[in-house]
């Protein structure tokens, strides 16, 4: 039965290869996207960190995105 499942009555090569290519390609795009996102998050956090106390306060007050970002970023570490 398992033999049959793998060979797919002779079509195994084509079926398994197309599923494998699909999931491999999707996985690679996910990995690339995830890595780029993390890199930008890290850089952004670093840059916020380098600002002086007064500057950071001003940025966080004016930009909702920056404050939300910092809140979620600190949680995820």
């Amino acid at each position: 039965m398992i033999q049959n499942f793998i060979s797919m009555n002779g079509y195994g090569f084509f079926v398994w290869l197309s599923f494998a290519i699909t999931f491999l390609a999707c996985g690679m795009l996910y990995y690339k996207t995830y890595k780029t996102l993390k890199k930008y998050e890290k850089d952004f956090a670093k840059e916020l960190d380098q600002l002086s106390e007064a500057e950071r306060k001003l940025v966080l007050e004016k930009s909702k995105v920056a404050s939300q970002f910092l809140a979620s970023y600190n949680k995820s570490i």
Binding site: L37, Y40, E41, D43, F44, E47, L48, V59
Partner: peptide
């Protein structure tokens, strides 16, 4: 990523 990129540029 795009939003962060823009915010970072305009920090």
């Amino acid at each position: 990523t795009e939003i962060i990129r823009i915010k970072k540029k305009n920090i």
